[in-house]
């Protein structure tokens, strides 16, 4: 399946397409935005606290006189990098475990599956809180918490796909050709599982932004004055009445990014799903 074909199908779902553009815009802002801001994210101006919306401070300033837009832009860097680094490393481990369990079966499978069961037995956020509680807070530890949060669901999904692929005749055909296990796994099993992995990663990105923000909001993840969205929410809630934008701005940012990831994930699933693609017409065999 070529990239063009996937893109053609993805384009059909307008909501996903819009969500994708929103995400691309936010990525761009996170990447280059900091070069254009007038202030530093932690730069205080106590004389100018609770400044209203103006050209100088498009989203006003908070109780310490910090520019909210600047903090929001820097915050997007923190939030997105936690999400990407956490999810990618977590999913890497998850894929590895899933492939091992699915392909080799027997005791390897039993061992890994029990591990997954244990991790899945905790409610997601509780697991993240527990990890941060053990490791301590900070950006790196939040990433680790997000990573571990992603491992079990990814491992379970990949394990399922690998088991069904392993019994496909084209994989058996490779065995008959005398192919090595590595070749079978990387060239045939993983490439065929890739579309499902991409979809899961996208959906996980959304939920881990939520998890990371929740941790910070609870004062367990990224600590102030670091401008992370969840931490901004936490700081803003104290002065919600006098400066509602301090809560609204990061809150909306989290909501928009999470919804967008989830819409893009749905769109990708439809675009990549070979079952919908090859809708059989004619004989109902």
């Amino acid at each position: 399946m070529t990239f063009q074909a996937v893109w053609k199908r993805f384009k059909r779902r307008k909501t996903s397409l819009i969500a994708l553009f929103i995400l691309l815009f936010i990525f761009a802002v996170a990447l280059v935005g900091p070069f254009f801001t007038k202030y530093e994210p932690t730069e205080m101006a106590l004389k100018n606290k609770y400044a209203p919306v103006s050209l100088d401070n498009p989203l006003g300033t908070d109780q310490l006189g910090r520019d909210t837009l600047t903090r929001l832009i820097y915050g997007s860097r923190v939030s997105l990098s936690i999400a990407f680094a956490g999810v990618l490393s977590g999913c890497f481990v998850g894929v590895l475990l899933g492939v091992l369990a699915g392909y080799f079966g027997s005791w390897v499978d039993s061992l890994i599956s029990r591990l997954i069961d244990v991790l899945l037995a905790f409610p997601g956020l509780l697991l993240a809180i527990a990890i941060v509680a053990i490791l301590g807070n900070g950006v790196l530890n939040t990433m680790i918490a997000v990573a571990i949060f992603c491992v079990p669901s990814m491992a379970r999904i990949v394990r399922g796909i690998v088991i069904s692929l392993k019994n496909q005749e084209f994989v058996q055909a490779c065995q008959v050709m005398g192919a090595s296990t590595g070749r079978i796994l990387f060239r045939h099993v993983l490439t065929n599982a890739m579309s499902m992995i991409i979809v899961t990663v996208t959906l996980d990105l959304g939920s881990s932004i939520l998890t990371a923000s929740a941790l910070s909001f609870l004062g367990l993840g990224v600590m102030p004055p670091n401008p992370e969205w969840g931490a901004m929410l936490n700081a803003g809630k104290e002065v919600m009445r006098s400066y509602p934008l301090g809560v609204l701005a990061p809150g909306l940012a989290i909501t928009i990014v999470v919804i967008s990831f989830s819409l893009v994930g749905d769109g990708l699933r439809d675009a990549l799903d070979p079952r919908l693609k090859n809708l059989k017409i004619g004989e109902s065999q």
């Binding site: 496909q168 005749e169 084209f170 055909a173 008959v176 050709m177 005398g178 490439t191 070979p274």
Partner: peptide
């Protein structure tokens, strides 16, 4: 040895759809 066997004995599968890697 397995590879050596593969050069001598091959297999044709029943299902022409699932026996070829779609990608």
């Amino acid at each position: 040895e397995r590879k050596e066997l593969a050069r001598n004995v091959q297999f044709i599968f029943q299902d022409p759809f699932s026996s070829l890697d779609p990608r």
